[in-house]
Amino acid sequence: MRKYKFFVDLAKEEQWLNEMASQGYVLAGKSGASYRFESGEPGSFVLRIDYRSFKHAADFEDYRLLFEDSGWRHIAGTKSSGAQYFLKKTADQSEDIFSDADSKAGKFKRLSEMWFSLAVCFLPILTALVMAGNIDLTAFLQPAKLYYTPGLWDKTGADFWGAFLFETPFALLRGFIWLILPVSIVLYAVFAAKARKQYNKTLNKI
């Protein structure tokens, strides 16, 4: 069975995957937003998510082997994907890949740092666009300026609507594609703050 879902919150994702497992759907693979499940005995699997990226393939291999040796099967995650999914066959639903609050909280800190660095990466691009005068704010007031079809505004009836609707997607791209940058920066900053909050919450929960 396949399901498509997108999570920003690692804790909620882990909770959902464990709920699925308790209903007999055990995570067997994940690529992007697509989760692949296989059937397994309900209540006999625990799924845990770690967040960690690696510089070298050997480090990743060593990391996975430590978990495998400890009885955690690595289900999904690559060297640089960050999220790593581990599954253990056990009736004890409290089994965890972390044994203290510090290390359990640590994954949210790494996640928060990743979102924050993404936000910071986009800042110079936006600054450069603004400085170079590539962003035309008057497009908000006079969107008509974004249409380049000669004589578009003199046309009438079906002729006008055909040409107008045809060009609209291009006009929008031309005028507002840059908005992706500030929107992404704000989103990444919000995700970073959320992960940071979760870090503090986990740290204070013994």
Partner: peptide, 22 residues
């Protein structure tokens, strides 16, 4: 790694059971 986990359990007489991620 895993040998460290086993040794710790042995040295602490089973009191400290560290998890892999930790």
């Amino acid at each position: 790694g895993y040998l460290i986990l086993q040794k710790i359990e042995e040295l602490s007489l089973g009191q400290v059971r560290m998890a892999a991620g930790t």
